[in-house]
């Protein structure tokens, strides 16, 4: 994907960026940030228990520049439930569905996000998701009181716009390790090289991931580079998963036959002793 100047999107930062370029002609237009992953295809085999990837790259920076790295998983619906006490026990009383939210969202940066750029600039570069933006998700309320026999649609915009609800979603997703912001997690060298270590959890969703690297200077995204990462089941775990989903009746019969055979074998072994 071609990197672009975030400054193009709004007039004010564009002017600021232009002013900056005019003030320091020696720098001219900085070269694009380049980045690569140590492994762009993560295979979830039977021995998978999380893995570490190295993301590294080069940029043409000056002291004080920042790098932000966003690893985003495939979009999915997230069901969020709220419990309340009913007749002395805690039961789910409310269901909210967050539509097309990232199933995985880890943000790495050279500093605190808030000191790299303001929320609007982060939002323009769509890295604001966890700093308060979350503009790309919208939700829908479902009453689960068991009455009315249907789902009542509330105004999606109102839900997406409520910061408290977004914070709740963020807290839940951070608790299961799928969303994370890791400030000061990128190491830079001589304002030229950077690297970050991505720690993928064991419950990682499968699918096509998007990894974006953004080069920030004075609160403005100068350059962006995106690269793909695929997370796939592989080996025996892929085989069992595909078998279970593509030939589910046969899989069930196979599971039963296996259980009967091993039960019979176990009984036979018992008897010998």
């Amino acid at each position: 994907m071609i990197g672009r100047l975030a400054a193009h999107r709004t007039a004010a930062p564009a002017l600021a960026g232009l002013a900056m370029l005019l003030a320091e002609p020696a720098m001219a237009a900085p070269k694009q940030v380049v980045a690569d992953l140590s492994n762009s295809r993560v295979e979830i085999t039977s021995s998978y228990h999380g893995t570490e990837l190295l993301l590294f790259g080069a940029y043409e920076g000056v002291p004080g520049d920042d790098i932000i790295l966003v690893v985003q998983g495939p979009a999915t619906d997230i069901i969020q439930r709220r419990k309340a006490k009913r007749a002395g026990i805690w039961v789910n009383v409310e269901t909210k569905i967050w539509q097309q939210a990232p199933s995985f969202y880890h943000v790495f940066a050279t500093d605190e996000l808030s000191s790299i750029a303001d929320e609007r600039a982060l939002g323009n570069a769509t890295v604001g998701a966890l700093s308060g933006g979350l503009s790309f998700v919208s939700g829908r309320d479902e009453s689960s009181n068991g009455q009315g026999g249907g789902t009542s649609l509330a105004s999606g915009a109102a839900i997406a716009g409520n910061p408290e609800q977004r914070n709740n979603l963020r807290r839940n997703m951070e608790a299961n390790g799928l969303w994370q912001v890791l400030p000061s997690s990128i190491v830079t060298q001589q304002d030229m090289l950077f690297r970050a270590s991505l720690s993928l959890p064991s419950n990682i969703p499968t699918g096509d991931y998007n990894v974006r690297v953004l080069h920030f200077r004075d609160g403005v995204a100068l350059s962006e580079r995106a690269t793909d990462m695929k997370v796939r089941k592989a080996g025996l775990s892929a085989l069992i998963y595909r078998f279970a989903h593509d030939y589910s009746a046969l899989y069930g019969i196979f599971a039963i036959v296996f259980a009967v055979a091993s039960g019979w074998l176990a009984a036979a072994a018992f008897r010998r002793k």
Binding site: S46, I240, S248, F254, A255, F258, A259, S262
Partner: peptide, 27 residues
């Protein structure tokens, strides 16, 4: 066996690997 078959078909929630390992310990 009926539950195993129906859950396999309807929800794909029978984990064959988990069942096999549990079985090994249980025997």
């Amino acid at each position: 066996a009926n539950v195993t078959l129906l859950q396999s078909i309807q929800t794909q929630t029978v984990d064959f690997l988990l069942a096999g390992l549990l079985l090994f310990g249980a025997v």
